[in-house]
Amino acid sequence: MAVEKYRVQAGEQWFDVSIEPKNGRYAVTVGEKTWEADLEVFTGTNLVSLILDRRSLKFLVDKDGDRYTVLRNLELHEVRVKAAWAAAKGGGTAGAGGGDLTIESPLVGVVVQVRAQAGQKVEKGEVLCVIEAMKMQNELKAPRAGTVKAVRVSQGQKVAQKQALLLLG
């Protein structure tokens, strides 16, 4: 089988991962390094065992579409995986390498305030909107600097978890 290439975002870092099936396992290459990799999901659980060469690593993994939440020891990683060809075309909402970013509501609630307008430049940490839930007003801050490309909600609107609120360019 051919080599498949993936563009992977883990936290704020990007990795190019090549995967090639080999002897019932995989040859995995990241940058200059290549490992022989074997992957196994413990049946009926979210526990994943990965052997890189001879080293065994264990993870707890949750999956939602192309988004993975990976817990290893005490580290929680938010990971997105795109096929390299799709990433190159800029497909998907995340785009490739620092493209547009959809700001989603982290919780079910009501939009009590929209502070950012389309076209507005924002700094990292600037409050974009305020959502009320669990009787608390929660400020939603820009995860990075950028320009607000679109605002998809208005004041007083009920929002679902993961509903798109704004598009940050």
């Binding site: 990241v30 990799a37 994943v48 990683h77 997105r80």
Partner: peptide, 15 residues
């Protein structure tokens, strides 16, 4: 996080 590379590999393999 000290080891995002491993997380990237495990997610890529699962995908």
């Amino acid at each position: 996080n000290a080891s995002p590379e491993y997380a990237a590999i495990v997610a890529a393999l699962l995908e």
